[in-house]
Amino acid sequence: DETGKFLVLALYDYQEKSPREVTAKKGDILTLLNSTNKDWWKVEVNGRQGFVPAAYVKFL
């Protein structure tokens, strides 16, 4: 159920650099879980949760 969740689009490829991050490919649609940090947003992609740089994604 996606009610109340926001989707964001990956603008660039991002390769995770730590276990707390997730890899995303340009064009991926990610479920935004938390955007309270202006630099790192928590997302879910391909069943995995983790952080990506906020500058790499935008709201749909």
Rank of each mutant, 00 (worst) to 15 (best):
D1G: 13
D1F: 14
E2Q: 14
E2K: 14
T3H: 14
T3R: 13
T3K: 14
T3N: 13
K5S: 11
K5F: 14
L7F: 14
L9D: 01
A10K: 03
A10H: 03
A10F: 13
L11P: 02
Y12G: 04
Y12A: 10
D13A: 05
D13T: 06
D13S: 07
Y14S: 02
E16T: 07
E16W: 06
K17R: 12
K17F: 05
K17V: 08
K17T: 11
K17H: 08
S18L: 07
S18W: 07
S18P: 02
P19Q: 09
P19N: 10
R20I: 12
E21T: 08
V22W: 02
V22R: 02
T23A: 04
T23M: 03
T23S: 15
T23H: 04
T23I: 05
K25D: 03
K25L: 08
G27C: 09
G27W: 05
G27N: 05
G27S: 03
G27L: 04
D28I: 07
D28C: 11
D28Y: 08
L30D: 01
L30A: 02
T31K: 13
L32P: 01
N34H: 06
S35W: 15
S35N: 12
N37L: 09
N37W: 07
N37K: 04
D39C: 13
D39K: 12
D39H: 14
W40M: 04
W40C: 06
W40I: 01
W41Y: 10
W41H: 00
W41N: 00
K42D: 02
K42T: 07
E44A: 07
N46D: 12
N46I: 04
N46Q: 08
N46L: 08
R48M: 07
R48T: 06
R48K: 11
G50W: 06
G50L: 05
F51V: 04
V52E: 01
V52C: 08
A54M: 05
A54D: 02
A55N: 12
A55H: 11
Y56P: 00
V57C: 09
V57Q: 01
K58I: 14
K58L: 12
K58C: 15
F59S: 10
F59G: 06
L60N: 06
L60S: 04
L60V: 11
L60E: 04
